[in-house]
Amino acid sequence: MTRDRQRIATEFSFALNAAANRMVRLHKPFLEPLGLTFSQYLVALELMNGSPLTVGELCARLDMETGTLTPLLKRLEAAGVVTRTRDASDERRVLIDLTPHGRALEGALRGIPDRIRTACQLTPEAIEELRRTLDGLARPVAAP
């Protein structure tokens, strides 16, 4: 790789990292009063879209490893946001569901994306284009 291409790739990586960090910081004032971290927020939103889910399903949907997700789920359970129960039909699987307290957070959590869009000062079209670009980076099409 030439020096210029290496510099551009490095700057690209730094820009992506800075944007990701900014997203976490933008969410923080909305999540702290609810007692949630950004990662916990993502789990709760996914469960609000349909639960219960297995740990494996959550890992796949959130692109997280089990070793990352399990401690996060334990903290959410301790906070009374989710339950973790063995699947009666297959005890190797753990089902994750929202508690009544977790469901009560739905209104507040579902309102956060609009506040973030406002803070980013991007048009809906620009946000959609950026989302498609980021999805392409996160899940590239497999080579034939």
Rank of each mutant, 00 (worst) to 15 (best):
T10E: 10
R25L: 15
A119H: 11
E77H: 15
T118W: 15
N17V: 00
L122E: 11
R103I: 04
T37G: 07
T54N: 10
N17E: 11
R25G: 13
I8K: 05
G102Q: 07
E129K: 09
D135E: 10
T68F: 14
E57R: 12
G80M: 04
R115H: 13
R92D: 09
Q121A: 12
L34A: 06
D135V: 07
M48Y: 00
A88T: 14
S13R: 04
G111S: 13
R7T: 10
T99K: 03
A78Y: 08
L26V: 15
T123I: 01
R75D: 09
L16S: 04
G35Q: 03
P71Q: 10
L62D: 02
G102E: 02
I112E: 05
H101I: 09
P71Y: 03
A78D: 13
T37S: 07
R75G: 03
S89A: 14
R93F: 05
S51A: 12
I96R: 00
Q6H: 07
S89W: 06
C120T: 09
R117Q: 13
P113F: 10
E128Y: 12
A108C: 06
L53D: 02
L105S: 07
K28I: 07
L16F: 07
P100N: 04
L36G: 06
D135F: 06
V55W: 05
A143K: 01
T37F: 04
L34W: 00
I116G: 03
D87R: 05
L31R: 04
D114W: 07
R110Q: 06
A18G: 10
L47T: 00
R84S: 07
R110S: 11
A44W: 02
T83F: 14
E91H: 08
S51Y: 08
L47K: 01
L105V: 02
G80P: 07
E11N: 05
E91M: 15
R115Q: 15
M23K: 06
E57S: 09
S13D: 03
G102V: 01
